[in-house]
Each structure stands twice: as C-alpha cells, then as structure tokens.
Write a protein that binds this DNA or RNA. Structure first.
Length: 423
RNA sequence: GUGGCUGUAGCUCAAUGGCGGAGCAUCGCACUGUGGAUGCGAGGGUUGUGGGUUCGACCCCCAUCAGCCACCCCA
C-alpha cells in the first residue's frame, strides 16, 4: 500500500464514474457547439514559451505555466490556454479561411496553481470562438450559446446568470466622469476589485492610485446603476437579439464585470452561480485583434472559455450530475461449468452480433456467485446455458429487475431481450 | 506565492500521553441450477511521511507531503 506512487499534485485520476461525467460534459458541449454550426478543432498540448511571451496576462506564463527544457534545451510549455494557439492557427491560414470562422475545442490545460475546490493544475476547458466579425450579433451569439449550454445541462436562470458589460461603454463613462486616459486601466482594475474589499479599503486603495473623490463617487454610482447599458447602442442590440433568441432570461447587465485579460476590447461577460456570488463558471468577451501578436492582419472576434471543474462544482450542488455509469452491458451470460463454457461464449457472441452489450462470467464459478456478481454490476438480464438448455437448444433468461425468468429458443434470445428492453 | 484548517482500515468516523476500535463495504459459510434479505465468521493498519520530546506518542513539538478553505489570479 505504502509504495503506491501518488498522482502529481493537482492532477486527477478519472475513474469510470468521473470519466462518465467528463464524457457527459463533452457530449453537451459538442451538441450545443454543433447546433450553432461550430466546427471542432484542437491545438498542440506542447508549445514553445515564446508563443505566450507577448500575449495574455504576463502572470499566466511567468508564474502559472508548466515550463521545462526539452532534450535539446528548448523551453517547452504545457499549454495554459488555447487562444495563442488558435491565433497562430488562424494566422497561418489567414488568407484561405472562410470568415466568419466558428470553431470550438475541449481539451486539457495545465496551470501551476495551488489546487482547491474547483481548481486544479490539470483541467479541461471548453473554448469557443466566432472570428472575423465585429457585430453585436456575434457577441449575442456567444452569450446565447452559454445560455443554451446551461439549459441543456439543467441549470435554470435562477441558478446561473451570464453577466454582461461593455468595455467601450465603461470607457465612455470614464470620460464622462473625467477620468484621464492614463487612469482608465487602473479604473477597470479598481472595478474588478470592488467586491473583494470593504468600501473603506476600496476608497483608500483608489486614493492611493490617484483617483479623486469625485471620480470615486462617480465610479461607485456607475457600479450601482443597472440601467447604464441603455446608453450603449451595442449592448441594447445585444439584449434585443438575446431576447429574440429566447436566451435573455439567463443574461443580465453587470457593470462590475470587466475581466482581467487585456485583450478584451468590447463586450465582456462572465457566468456565475447567482445564489452564492460564487466564482465564475466561464468568461469571455470581444477582442479587437486576435492575430496581430503572431504576425497576422487585424482580425476581431468573440469567444469564451469554460473550465470543467467549476461547472462540476455547481452542477453537483444542484444535483444535476448524471448518475454514476456502471457497466454498459445489459446482459451477463453465466458459465455453467468448464465443459459448457464454449456454449456460453457462442451465445454471448451471437448476442453481441445482434447489437447487445454482453458480459460473460470469466470463470466457471458457482451460479449463486455469478448471479450475485450480475446483481452488483447492475446488468438487467442473466442467461444460463446448462445441460438442459444445450439439449433443448434454448437459453434461460432471467430478468433481474422484474424477477422473472423464461426459457427461450437460442435463436430468439436476442429478439426476446430487445423486446423486453423496449418495453 | 501568502495565511489558516484537516490527515487513523476501501469509505465515514471513534480512541484523558497508557492494549488502535465501530458502522458500512469486501471475502467466506449457512446456500453444488439462480441475485438483493438475515445470521455467524474472517481478512484488512508502519495512525500521510520523516525527525524530536517522553518510561511510554494517533495524541505534544518541528519539518515535509497531500486535501480543503480564504487571499492572489483566473476557468
């Protein structure tokens, strides 16, 4: 026992039960993505560190990426996010791709973080982007995809919400409040920090950063006003579209959402569980230029990313995770004794040929043990082929859930079971 | 990266510094052509790891690892 080598910190074993949940998530992600016409893609899991050097939050690469030298001495990074890879993939074929581009992906990422609930060092992430358009319709489409996904997994609008804001609206409001250009970035940061500090600490912090009392009062007011979006033609349009698309129940304007990543230039959004003001489930927004950092021509887009950990935390809280997997088999074929084991193998093969999932007991153990095993793994039907059945060309089919049993001609067994399964 | 809480059987948890236990689970038997129930029995532990204090450590101290929580940051 003591010699078992533990998993790498922050990495997870996927036992069948967890694997079933991962596949279930993947299934819904696939369906929603495809329903909007998005194509699946993926990038490499390993990238050169330079790819991340210029882009996306300095801290992400410097402090949170797994970086190691390969045997040739080159610094290799386990990808901490997908956007830079996506940017390269688009830039490499910028001229030949057909826009707008609708692409999605679900795969593993690594970040050297301190693991806790809803956060590990190896996680899966859904990335989805609409590239090559700049319209509010595009923003609305991605937000509607969030809403559709939540609906698909059973989350209701009173459980999760997509909170939306527009950085350009904030920018205009900053102008109105007399906040100079050099303070705007700090102002966004200040908004981001508002909920994490007491009002006093927040004010002190703001004063330290160079904000006047007037600006501060204006900012505080801006954060309380849930109607400001009406000043923004873009947000007005986004909400109009979301209403028409039947997604607006899941969406709300929220001035406190500004998002940390600097490449967002327009609409930004973040989904949260609303009952506890929890951590964000997913986040995204509009970026003005995806590919310039990797040498392409300016190309706008909108996208979001959702990690697999937080969504599972939320789904579990609301009892929405699918029931544990168990065996995919419907049938267990017992082995009466060693001499008749080929009969069982033949019957099992026939049933598999008919499209059924069949477990054979791998040993000529006593029948009670085989039945007990069948019960525990959760198959519905147990088949017995003993001397009597072989003589008569039949098989005995016991339905564990109905507690009934019938002896059926061998060639009719598959049909018999299918009928019972359908009924 | 910072601060805090917790590590005892497969799981959930007990055990004043003095013989490490229970429930559930597992396995066996009652029960050689039929599962769940019941009864009886069995196996399972370097008390996360490594040091220290002590006549004696699951218990106290130090370190370390892991999990969780709050920051940081974000998904």
């Amino acid at each position: 026992m003591k010699t078992i080598v533990s998993t790498v910190k922050g990495a997870r074993d996927f036992y069948p039960q967890q694997m079933a949940i991962r596949n279930w998530l993947y299934h819904h992600i696939t369906r929603v993505s495809r329903s909007y016409g998005y194509e699946e893609y993926d990038g490499p899991f390993l990238e050169k560190i330079e790819l991340y050097a210029a882009k996306s939050g300095e801290e992400l690469v410097k402090e949170q990426a797994f970086v190691f030298p390969d045997r040739g001495g080159e610094l290799i990074t386990l990808r901490p996010e997908l956007t830079p890879s996506l940017a390269r993939m688009v830039a490499q074929k910028q001229g030949e791709l057909l826009y707008p581009l609708r692409w999605w992906s679900f795969g593993p990422f690594w970040r050297y973080e301190k693991p806790q609930k809803g956060r590990s060092r190896e996680f899966f992430q859904w990335n989805i982007d609409l590239i090559g358009v700049d319209s509010p319709e595009a923003d609305a489409e991605l937000i509607a995809i969030c809403a559709d996904f939540f609906r698909a997994v059973g989350l209701a609008p009173d459980q999760v919400q997509v909170f939306v804001n527009d950085r350009q609206l904030m920018d205009a409001e900053f102008d109105r409040l007399g906040i100079p250009a050099e303070l705007k970035k700090k102002a966004l940061h200040l908004i981001d920090r508002r909920e994490k500090m007491s009002p006093e600490a927040w004010k002190a912090y703001a004063a330290e950063e160079g904000f006047s009392d007037n600006m501060l009062a204006g900012l505080a007011e801006l954060l309380e006003d849930k109607q400001t979006w009406k000043q923004s033609p873009r947000l007005t349009r986004v909400f109009e579209i979301l209403k028409a698309a039947g997604a607006v129940d899941y969406v709300a304007y929220e001035p406190r959402i500004v998002r940390g990543l600097e490449y967002y230039t327009g609409v930004v959004f973040e989904a949260k569980e609303i009952t506890k003001e929890g951590r964000s489930i997913l986040g995204g927004g509009h970026y003005g230029n995806l590919v310039s950092d990797v040498g392409g021509d300016p190309l706008p887009g909108v996208g979001f990313a959702m990690g697999d950990m937080m969504i599972q935390v939320v789904l579990e809280k609301f009892g929405l995770l699918p029931a544990a997997g168990g065996t995919p088999a419907e049938i267990l074929v017992t082995v009466f004794d060693e001499s008749l084991s080929p009969e069982s193998a033949r019957l099992a093969a026939d049933l598999r040929g008919a499209g059924l999932n069949v477990v054979t007991y791998p040993d000529a153990q006593k029948l009670p043990r085989q039945f007990k095993f069948a019960d525990k793994i959760g198959v519905r039907f147990v088949l017995v082929v003993g001397p009597d059945e072989v003589m008569a060309g039949t098989a005995t089919v016991k339905d564990l859930s109905e507690r009934t049993q019938e002896t059926v001609a061998r060639e009719k067994v598959a049909e018999y079971i299918k009928t019972r399964l359908a009924g």
